[in-house]
Design a protein around this nucleic acid. Structure first.
Lengths: 226, 226
DNA sequence: TTATCCTTGACATTTGTCTGACATCTTTCC
DNA sequence: GGAAAGATGTCAGACAAATGTCAAGGATAA
């Protein structure tokens, strides 16, 4: 996921913003001047920009204009309370929203999410291991650009293993995480699921990864290189 | 240009809104209850809705949901000052923006313009999945250049699925979004609707997409591009 | 009214899962 | 090296659960 660029010269405020956004699982990048903002913008191609108006050197409006020249990346302006003129200018100049200081953390996150939802509409959540592609949202697994049909349980198992590549889990652990803590049946159900997964993934180049058995321990999804 | 629908029960406020918007060359329509709002909405197909939360009868959230069922027309909520919860709810429920009372006239106009600019700028409302063409705004579905006749409920369901291709929804979620949060009946109504949709889409090449069942989870509109 | 739409309840069908048995493999110990 | 014990791989069948389907009967709107 591309990061959110925070352009704010006051260090404490910048840190607060970062904290809230990271808590909400967003990546962040911080810069403290307008010039840095533009340079960094090109480098990291952020998913969204939080832009303070009062900045040393070039101010927020100028930055906004520069950004708008080359991108329609969503921008939320940070403005002092009650500066209605600022608000109006911002919305007319192409800002997507504004947030008044002082702000509540929840509100910042909600605004960011709202703007991202508007502008992105969708963002696929896919994980790749070479030829193997796992799409969490769509509940779909592709191997070699081709869809693979998996049973729900098998898919859950694969997803769980894929979340922790190269880590070994006992049958018990797998049962607990994939089947559920209230499962009563035997451990051997895991074997069957593993078997079907291996069969389904037989065309996955062994050089890229495989499902390994660790005798006496359990199973793991091994992935190599990258 | 399509008018802006003002839904506000307090007459003076409604008048102020109308005055500002007309000054900015927008056409306006005023209604004073939620019920009228929905009826009028269908008739005039406004370009934007200004929606008060506190309304006699159905409140603003209910109206918003009803509107969202059949249209992605931009909606700006009017909220009392400081009701942060309302703000958050609104942004999450599909409102495009909110304005706190008391508001400055200029600000209202700026917000309206901003939202219109945002929503008009984005992609056309018709989505193509190979032979299948879905017009979210016009509420029309074409397969192979030919209009498909669907029951209203089925159409809503298809439109909703098409808004989020490759995303899986439980029956519960579909009921909530398509049938409405106050629906009392059984989940299985979804099955029937899905069945009719599949029948209606039977000439849609399976290589382009399909309505997929995810056993134990729900349904999704799968599209396979390229 | 007539026609359309929606839901209910029943039943059919498909699919997923587990059990138990047996085969195969690995390790250990003699 | 070889046999026994234990772990894992594999299979088929039975069962359960989710889904597909149908037809009848209200409800609603034209």
């Amino acid at each position: 996921m591309k990061p959110i660029l925070i352009v704010e010269d006051e260090y404490p405020i910048s840190q607060v913003l970062r904290a809230y956004l990271q808590k909400a699982k967003f990546d962040t990048e911080q810069v403290y001047t307008g010039e840095d903002a533009l340079a960094r913008f090109d480098e990291i191609k952020p998913s969204l920009v939080l832009l303070d108006i009062m900045l040393p050197g070039k101010n927020g409006w100028q930055i906004l204009k520069e950004i708008r020249k080359k991108s329609n990346c969503p921008v939320i302006m940070l403005t002092a309370l009650g500066e209605v003129n600022d608000r109006l200018t911002g919305l007319n100049e192409g800002a997507d929203d504004y947030i008044s200081k002082p702000f509540a953390g929840d509100e910042v996150v909600a605004r960011v999410k709202a703007v991202l939802r508007r502008t992105e509409a969708k963002q696929p959540s896919v994980q790749r291991f070479g030829q193997l592609e796992i799409d969490l949202d769509a509940h779909r697994v592709k191997l070699n650009e081709q869809n693979i049909e998996l049973r729900p349980r098998d898919l859950s198992l694969l997803l769980f293993l894929a979340e922790h590549p190269n880590k070994t889990f006992t049958r018990e652990q797998l049962i607990e995480h994939v089947w559920g803590f209230d499962y009563e049946g035997s451990d051997r159900a895991v074997d069957l699921s593993i078997k079907r997964l291996r069969k389904a993934l037989k065309d996955w180049p062994a050089s890229e990864g495989e499902i390994r058995t660790l005798r006496g321990l359990g199973y793991q999804l091994s992935v190599y290189e990258e």
